[in-house]
């Protein structure tokens, strides 16, 4: 199954190389990885999505912990968390089809961030399901370019909860 790891690391040069290098030499596959600094400029937060069974995850977790720059690892997969991904999509849009595309943008609560003579560039955030659905809806129009940030995630403010609440929040956003 897919696991979402929230990894706090020292914001030092080379820390990304250390983490990425560990994944490759121990044979762990990264599904996605997003990294940026936290409210504390000395600390960065990585959200890493990996696929594997519990034993695989345990070993990955322990190996990551051996890196001196890794401060804290939380496997938040089974906890209640909020996750988001931001995607930019440039889609072919001649005058005749623009209205149709803008309708889709409305339905998915996406935003048009750039308008070209023959294209529209759309920003959409959400979880994997929503983004995939949106991508599929746009495909018939002709996707020229697509870029995803990778998922970022955060535990909810309360402990008890279930994945259902995640999904509910998703629909509202």
């Amino acid at each position: 199954m897919k696991h979402t790891l929230a990894v706090e690391v020292e914001n030092t040069p080379g820390v990304l190389a250390r983490v990425a290098g560990l994944f490759s030499r121990r044979g762990f596959n990264i599904d996605s990885l997003a990294v940026g600094r936290t409210d504390n400029p000395a600390v960065s937060r990585m959200t890493i999505v990996v696929e594997g069974d519990d034993r695989y995850l345990e070993q990955l977790n322990k190996q990551l912990h051996k890196l001196v720059d890794v401060i804290k690892i939380s496997d938040i997969t089974r906890d209640a968390y909020v996750d988001r991904e931001l995607v930019l999509i440039k889609v072919s849009a001649d005058a005749a089809r623009r209205a149709e595309i803008m309708q889709l943008v409305d339905i998915f609560r996406a935003r048009i961030v750039d308008v070209g003579p023959k294209t529209l560039t759309i920003e959409v955030t959400g979880n994997d399901g929503k983004i995939t659905a949106f991508e599929e809806s746009l495909r018939p129009f002709g996707i020229k370019e697509l870029v995803r940030t990778g998922k970022i995630a955060m535990l909810r403010g309360f402990k008890a909860g279930s994945k259902n609440i995640n999904n509910k929040e998703e629909e509202e956003s």
Binding site: P13, G14, A17, R18, G21, L22, R25, K66, V68
Partner: peptide, 15 residues
């Protein structure tokens, strides 16, 4: 530091 990354416990490049 890059070459030895997989074979050190830790490393420093002094800046």
């Amino acid at each position: 530091t890059g070459i030895t990354m997989p074979i050190v416990k830790h490393s420093y490049l002094v800046k």
